[in-house]
Simulated assay, not measured.
Amino acid sequence: MNPTGPVLAATDFSPHARHAADRAARIAHAKGAPLALLHVLPGEALASLRQWLGAANAPEAQLTGDAREQLQRLATELGAARHVEVACSVTAGPPVDEILREAERLDARLIVLGARGIGFLRRLVLGTTAERLLRRTARPLLVVRQTPHERYRRVLVALDFSPWSGQALALARRIAPHAQLVLFSAFEVPFGEKLRFAGVDAATIEAYRHKARTDATLAVHRLAAAAGLKPAQWQACVVEGDASLRLVEKEQELDCDLVVLGKHGVAATVDLLLGSVTKHVLAEGSTDVAVSTAQEP
Rank of each mutant, 00 (worst) to 15 (best):
Ile111Arg: 04
Val144Glu: 14
Ala108Gln: 06
Asp97Lys: 15
Ile111Gly: 02
Pro140Cys: 09
Pro148Ala: 09
Arg116Tyr: 07
Ile99Gly: 00
Thr137Cys: 12
Gly117Trp: 04
Leu100Gly: 09
Ala103Asp: 08
Arg145Ser: 10
Arg151Asp: 15
Arg153Glu: 14
Glu77Trp: 08
Thr91Glu: 14
Gly114Met: 02
Gln72Tyr: 05
Phe120Arg: 05
Gly114Ile: 07
Glu77Gln: 15
Arg139Cys: 11
Val125Glu: 10
Leu141Thr: 05
Gly79Tyr: 01
Arg154Ser: 13
Ala80Asp: 07
Val84Gln: 07
Leu121Arg: 03
Asp107Gln: 15
Val143Pro: 01
Arg132Cys: 04
Arg151Leu: 08
Val84Cys: 02
Asp97Leu: 10
Val112Arg: 08
Leu100Cys: 12
Val96Asp: 05
Gly117Met: 05
Thr129Trp: 08
Thr129Glu: 14
Val125Cys: 06
Pro95Ile: 11
Arg135Gln: 07
Glu102Lys: 14
Arg101Ser: 13
Val84Tyr: 01
Glu77His: 05
His83Cys: 07
Thr128Glu: 13
Val90Met: 00
Ala80Lys: 02
Leu134Val: 01
Arg151Gln: 14
Val155Gln: 11
Thr147Asp: 10
Gln146Asp: 10
Leu106Pro: 13
Leu142Phe: 08
Arg82Phe: 00
Glu131Trp: 07
Thr128Gln: 12
Val143Cys: 09
Ala87Asn: 15
His149Leu: 09
Ala92Ser: 13
Leu133Glu: 00
Leu106Asn: 07
Arg151Gly: 09
Thr137Gln: 11
Ala80Met: 01
Thr147Pro: 04
